[in-house]
């Protein structure tokens, strides 16, 4: 049996201000992880990767990466702490970053 595919989403930082962004299911770069397009298999991951490459080449985003996630009660949760912190903001400053914004706070 093939190894279980680890879910992935596409992330980057926006060129102009460096804001962390994710490729969303409604096909735009979103400032929140919630609503990201999830790759459930290798083909979908390759498609996301192509979107990332194109966006990088179009100078919309930098530092493009596919990251591993899981679904917990329907909520996308990154596997690595690094990506959890990127999605929320500094753990030591809950008043800063996405965690301080109402939309992200609701989604969390």
């Amino acid at each position: 049996m093939a190894a279980k595919f680890i879910l992935q989403v596409l992330t980057a930082n926006r060129l102009g201000d460096g804001e962390a962004v994710w490729w969303s299911a409604d096909r735009r770069w979103s400032e929140t992880l919630a609503g990201s397009e999830i790759a459930h298999d290798a083909d979908a991951a390759a498609a996301l990767e192509a979107i990332g490459k194109a966006a990088h080449a179009a100078n919309l985003v930098v530092d493009v990466n596919l990251i591993d996630v899981e679904l917990a009660d329907g909520v996308i949760v990154p596997l690595r702490l690094r990506e959890k912190i990127r999605a929320a903001g500094p753990t030591i400053r809950p008043d800063l970053g996405k965690q301080a914004r109402p939309a992200a706070a609701r989604a969390a």
Binding site: G18, E19, A20, N59, V62, I85, R86
Partner: peptide
């Protein structure tokens, strides 16, 4: 491109971190 710009921004102290530049 980013590949062209990266060394230029670094020479001027501009890094890209987790949340922002």
């Amino acid at each position: 491109s980013e590949d062209q710009f990266r060394p230029l921004r670094l020479m001027n102290g501009v890094y890209l971190q987790l949340h922002a530049y």
